[in-house]
Write a protein that binds this DNA or RNA. Structure first.
Lengths: 332, 332
DNA sequence: TTGAAAGCGCTAACAA
DNA sequence: TTGTTAGCGCTTTCAA
């Protein structure tokens, strides 16, 4: 076990050429059964594990996909990692993770691309974030296939997995406006997996339909503690009929902040969160939330990307997944 | 940009041998300034990015570290990823992620090791889990350095980052026993980042010190929804003076389950969670929790591993990090 | 200070 | 069905 055993060792021991060994480990069908058996026996006996690096060099393919995301999006990416991990495992791809700061130092994107290119990842999965466009531009130069999660995107060597949040928000808003409820607050944070611009335009279009204009947007911290404090203050002097938050953590902060000010939820004020995370289950009252199939988005991203890599048939390189509104106690 | 530019292209363009180019990109000091400048200019102009795969093959080093964890531990690993990502980024290491099932199929560990060995990762970071021993045994055979997070471990090519939870639990328990509080319930889940055996022995030793025996242990689901239901039932017929949970999610489930049964916290029952996560801030009352510096543990794991890889001086390959009890409303 | 050349461990024509 | 051989793109002696 001391010296790494190579394909040469196997070849010598099995009395065949290394080409034959290579054929065996790559499942070529031309090898005679007897030879194959002999080679396999030797591989087993010597505990030979083909060096993926050497193979990568020879084939100019690494069967590696790079996943890139800003730290702040981690909470969302987290649930996706299950889907990404499982799928890439069954598809025999290795995944490398690259996190970026949120600070957005000037050369951050450059550094990232440098690393991606050097590592010769076959493809990359990106998440909707404020530097997305820049990232795509840079990476595309090197013809590396990209799949973006969280925003609509399609093109050459470029696909995406997304969900129609705009529609979701539009529907919710229309439903309230229909009932005469029009004091809606939209709460967002700096970084979000799903485009908050889309969501806002969803609300706006709904308002427009009822000949009203919408402009109640509040930005809060992605740190629960901070946004909770913010809402504790905020609800001393404010109250709305409905609050829509871009994620459950904010939603819970709203519930707790409002409750501290004796605002009764959902009677006086309704709250809706997003992503249907564990957070939504913990609050009192529990939080109504838009469920986004995060795990699936991860799985689909890997699936789509590998299809692109292997030139498989692709129905659409711009995949939409369905959301569902999960009703809980924070809405009527 | 179409054909990948290689070191040959640079060499030709700069009128030097590829050895010289190699020296330049590896920062060798022997190259004449003028030559170096010329080469760098060409590198820039051609946008040459050295192929890490080829380099890996030539040097038999990949500057890659593999991080392996079971899906169920993700919630904990999540916060560590920041530390792992940041540190490996500054140290110029690439990290690959490998998740394992919790099902623990027979050959799961074998498959994992197969992948690790083939990928020629320089080192691996493992997390405390039920298959840890098996994983270590298998991986060690290939002389791949390992750092374990979450449990004490030391040896040849083996280090660890851990925290003395046993002491933490021991202290907490003693403090109560001193006051005559001896009805303590310990709540654990199937998989945990920190060894619950350690924690339990911490309680037991405290009890022993007071000539009592401890045996109130409850296993609950790692799914909040399930454990919440479990505690809603449980506290219909039970009550304790103190509940210690192996993580905040369980702690919140306890608080909510008990509160539903009109058990007043902390007056009638105290609750302590672990890891000091956002969950602990959301509950009402907020949850007292043992803060474990998760980010640092990730950073330290990478640091220790890279030291092992580069034969740097190591004070101890068994690093202990400090915990702190964060007092909140769920304890008196 | 630089260059020539032999690997690193594998794949993939091309021959046999 | 198998073997020979030329790469893949870099690092690293050894000479010059």
């Amino acid at each position: 076990m001391d010296k790494k055993v190579t394909i040469y060792d196997v070849a010598r021991e099995a009395n065949v050429s290394l080409a034959t060994v290579s054929r065996v480990i790559n499942g070529s069908s031309v090898v005679k059964q007897a030879t194959k058996a002999r080679v396999l026996e030797v591989i087993e006996r010597l505990d030979f594990k083909p060096n993926e690096i050497a193979r990568g060099l020879a084939k100019s393919k690494t069967t590696t996909i790079a996943v890139v995301f800003p730290q702040s999006l981690f909470a969302h990416v987290k649930d996706m990692i299950g889907g990404i991990g499982d799928t890439s495992r069954t598809l025999k791809y290795t995944v490398t993770f690259h996190t970026t700061d949120d600070i957005g130092e000037d050369n951050m994107v450059n550094e990232l691309v440098e690393k991606l290119v050097k590592s010769r990842a076959d493809g990359v999965i990106l998440f909707n974030n404020e530097f997305l466009e820049e990232e795509i531009n840079q990476i595309s130069k090197y013809k590396i296939p990209i799949v973006v999660v969280g925003d609509y995107m399609a093109g050459d060597n470029l696909g995406s997995i997304h969900t129609n949040v705009k529609q979701a928000i539009y529907d919710i808003t229309c439903e309230r406006l229909e009932k005469g409820i029009d004091d809606i607050l939209f709460v967002t944070t700096h970084q979000n997996l799903l485009s908050d611009e889309e969501m806002i335009s969803g609300i706006q279009e709904a308002y427009a339909k009822y000949n009203k204009t919408f402009d109640q947007i509040l930005e809060s911290s992605s740190e629960y503690e901070e946004s909770y404090k913010q809402f504790q203050e905020y609800f001393k002097t404010h109250k709305h009929q409905l609050v829509i938050a871009t994620n459950d953590k904010e939603g819970v902060a709203v519930i707790n902040g409002a409750t501290d000010n004796q605002i009764s939820i959902p009677d006086e004020m309704e709250v809706i969160g997003m992503f249907n995370t564990t957070y939504a289950l913990m609050s009192k009252p529990t939080l109504t939330s838009i469920n986004i199939p995060i795990y699936n988005m991860g799985a689909l991203a890997v699936r789509l990307l590998t299809k692109m890599l292997n030139n498989e048939e692709i129905e659409s390189n711009d995949v939409e997944v369905k959301y569902i509104l999960i009703q809980r106690q924070s809405t009527k």
